[in-house]
Design a protein around this nucleic acid. Structure first.
Length: 677
DNA sequence: AGGCGCACTTTTTTT
DNA sequence: AAGTGCGCCT
């Protein structure tokens, strides 16, 4: 069981895990035992008598944070309090800190806004009149991208505008400088209004959670001392994805806590959230009293898989200085498989999965990855028809789907009556109430100081056939503030008829999601806590039962981003086509974006232990051959792939080699008769 | 004027 | 799956 005491660690991993100095960065390539080392470090500390509550185990995503905590619980000695071991995201950690120090953080009780809510809030702030008064249409997505980039990278509005809108242009070009200034005049008032709006309505967005805590800690030595005492040891996974705002947060712990960070610059794929993979190289300069270690021996894959991965990085103009060496030795060459379309692709993949399971492998030995969760839909369909159980990682979670948001909106109103975004959604659900009526009603009630008064005013408004359920649901939920599961079921039963009208045939299917939601609700003690949980940790995995029990063996369908940290015997990477790797979008954005795409594909390739299959469309290759001059074809990552690195399989061509039956010779081409009668 | 249904397009990645 | 645009209905 114990990782640390047994011979499971190599000397480099053990050396890192038992580090005696202050701060350490472990630079570790894919498959070199990054998670193992961080788990061993935690175990080393716990064995030395450190209270598990004093460990902050952090990562960028929920999945990898949970992974470390789960593995630690298995390997740690039985006399350690396992319930105190938790993996946190930076966001959930900051939320926890706010709750420990409620006097320093009045924001601890604010309603958290997820990305969709934030879009709604910015749309409200822009407003129709404001939008019309502007010379050019201001898109809410642009405002959010600029604002979020500025907050996450601690940069000025001008720099953020440059980065989001004029990235590939010359920063000092007078024309660009002029356009940035013009944008500033346009965007600054909207951003100002959004910040004021959050304060007024008691909202807090994802970026605020980090920003509020990082700034408070930076500004108070007293607070830093207290919080550092609470988290004496900070372990950070996926350090290469850490953005400047998170560096600022960590920087408040360098005086009194010890940092232990692991990462791999070649796996940095979160620049859209402000991470810069080069920052990790400056670790020892940024944090005083720190050292660096390296792990280079790969335990996961065969050499053939690593040869292809290494080759991909070597093609980059950037020097990643990575050459993974397989401890396991050699195996099967990666396959590049040509398919006609994504239907054939899905068919081949699912056939392969069935073949491996027939030979004794588990479904979970297969992993299918794609650039977006949406691109995996054909594979999902094929799994359904062939009765292959699967789990989906990434993309829109169950809790962000429309029908769940509908029910949660009633719960949000009951806890924060000024939650305008929830009011808008809730009111528009009901027949006869659209955008205009909803905002008219909200204008009438939002300044009242209790839900009762709001409901009374609502009932006075002249909506014909005002349904009793509109106020009935809210009243019912209000009575159950400390029983989120009951409150949810009550809201659901009152709203069911209306929701059925909205979702029609889909409703029976969507309704099942509330069973999962109810279980989440039952682990919380108030609706406020439930809503925070809902935003910070929405249940992402959609379990498909397929006539089997939940949590049984299943194939994993995942985005590359969500697959980070995963591994599997058989890995299928779909749609490895020109215009996809790198994506045409990234080509427009310039070289840095293209390099991030390269790292994305690298992450995908290095998930495989024994067999790696890459799929690409035959037609996209033909297009490339007839016109090899366009940008997408030139940059395509599989161009000029040395033939000895892969097996290229072309099913159509193989068919041609089969001997053909003798069917006689048609001497003249003709068309069938057409009936003009 | 405002709501609603229908056809149509468009999807990165995560907290 | 969810957003957008358009025309019809109340």
């Amino acid at each position: 069981m114990s990782l640390y005491n047994k011979t499971e660690l190599n000397e480099y991993q053990r050396d890192a895990a038992s580090f005696e100095g202050k701060h350490l960065l472990v630079l570790a390539g894919a498959g070199t035992g990054k998670t193992k080392t961080i788990v061993a470090r935690a175990e080393h500390l716990l064995n030395a008598g450190v209270n598990p509550k004093k460990l902050a185990i952090l990562s960028f995503t929920r999945k990898s944070a949970k992974e470390i905590a789960d593995r630690l619980k298995v390997s740690v000695s039985p006399n350690v309090n396992k319930s105190a071991i938790t993996g946190k995201t930076f966001h959930s950690w900051c939320n926890e800190i706010m709750h420990y120090y409620p006097d320093q953080f009045p924001h601890h009780s604010y309603t958290p806004l997820d990305e969709d809510d934030r879009e709604s809030a910015v749309a409200l702030v822009i407003g129709k009149n404001f939008r019309d008064s502007m010379e050019e249409k201001v898109k809410k997505e642009t405002i959010i991208a600029i604002y979020s980039y500025a907050v996450n990278t601690l940069c000025s509005l001008s720099d953020a505008i440059y980065h989001i809108r004029f990235y590939s242009s010359d920063r000092n070009d007078p024309e660009i400088v002029k356009r940035i200034e013009a944008d500033k005049i346009l965007f600054a008032p909207v951003i100002k209004k959004y910040i004021d709006y959050k304060k007024e309505r008691k909202y807090i967005d994802y970026d605020d959670m980090l920003n509020v805590v990082a700034s408070a800690l930076a500004g108070s030595e007293e607070l830093r001392k207290h919080v550092s005492d609470r988290y004496a040891y900070i372990l950070v996974d996926e350090m290469q994805d850490t953005n400047p705002l998170q560096y600022k947060l960590l920087n408040s712990f360098v005086e009194y806590s010890k940092l232990f960070c692991v990462g791999d610059d070649a796996q940095s794929i979160y620049s859209f959230r402000g991470a810069d993979f080069k920052t990790i190289h400056g670790f020892t300069e940024i944090f005083p009293n720190s050292e660096k270690r390296k792990l280079e021996l790969n335990y996961r894959s065969t050499q053939e898989i690593l040869d292809l991965s290494n080759w991909l990085l070597e093609q980059s103009p950037l020097a990643y200085d990575k050459k993974l060496i397989a401890h396991r030795g050699t195996g099967e060459k990666p396959n590049v498989i040509h398919v006609a379309d994504d239907w054939e692709e899905a068919d081949l993949i699912t056939d392969d999965i069935l073949k491996t399971t027939a030979e004794g492998s588990k479904f979970s030995d297969s992993l299918v990855v794609g650039r977006s969760i949406w691109s995996l839909s054909k594979v999902e369909g094929a799994c359904l028809t062939k009765k292959i159980p699967y789990l989906k990682y990434g993309g829109t979670s169950l809790m962000q789907s429309a029908h769940v948001r509908d029910v949660v909106s009633a719960m949000r109103i009951a806890t924060n009556i000024y939650d305008e975004i929830a009011w808008i959604r809730y009111l528009q659900l009901w027949e006869g109430i659209g955008e205009v009526f909803a905002s008219r009603i909200i204008n009438e009630i939002i300044s009242l100081d209790s839900l009762e008064k709001m409901i009374a005013q609502l009932e006075r408004s002249n909506i014909k056939n005002l349904k009793a359920e509109i106020s009935g649901t809210l009243k019912k939920v209000k009575e159950l503030l400390n029983n989120p599961a009951e409150a949810m079921m009550a809201a659901l039963s009152q709203m069911e008829e209306t929701l059925y009208g909205k979702y029609k045939d889909e409703w029976m299917h969507r309704m099942n999601d509330f069973d999962v939601l109810k279980e989440v609700a039952m682990t919380t003690t108030s609706i406020t806590e439930f809503i925070t949980e809902y935003v910070l940790d929405p249940k992402v995995e959609t379990t498909i039962k397929q006539g089997r029990e939940i949590n049984t063996d299943a194939v994993i369908l995942s985005t590359i981003h969500s697959a980070k940290g995963l591994e599997a015997n058989f890995v299928h990477v779909i749609n490895v086509n020109p215009n996809g790797y790198p994506s045409s979008r990234s080509i427009k954005q310039g070289e840095d974006a293209v390099e991030e795409e390269r790292r994305c594909l690298y992450v995908a390739l290095t998930r495989a232990k024994d067999r790696l299959n890459l799929y690409r469309f035959t037609r996209s290759i033909q297009v490339q051959q007839s016109d090899g001059t366009d940008e997408a074809s030139k940059l395509y990552f599989l161009n000029n792939i040395p033939p000895e690195l892969v097996n290229i399989q072309v099913p159509g061509v193989l068919d041609k080699d089969k001997p053909k039956p003798n069917l006689g010779v048609q001497t003249e081409a003709d068309f069938p008769d057409f009936d003009f009668g």
